[in-house]
Amino acid sequence: MKVILGSALLLFLMLFSVWEDQEIVNLGYATEEMRLAKAHQYERQQALMGKYYGLISLDRIERRAMTQLGLVRPQAGQVILMSKQ
């Protein structure tokens, strides 16, 4: 009986060890995947920022405002400055 219990305990410990190793490896895969995803998201964020600032560039906005919307610059006297005081 003692031999059977001892063998069962030994087997359990072995299986636990194998499971633990497997879990560590799985976590390693998951961590790596997330690290890569983070790096990819950072690069994407940089690319999108580049695009965003390209889209709001004054040169582009003014060109569109003048050519597509027909807007014009204010003439002298049309701009009235108000003192903050």
């Binding site: 950072y42 690069e43 940089q46 690319a47 920022m49 580049g50 600032y53």
Partner: peptide
């Protein structure tokens, strides 16, 4: 390392990295 970003005085991005 990612190359640093260049901003104007109002924090508008002037140079940035992209892949």
């Amino acid at each position: 390392p990612g190359r640093g970003t260049i901003y104007d005085r109002r924090e508008t991005v002037l140079a940035i990295n992209s892949d």
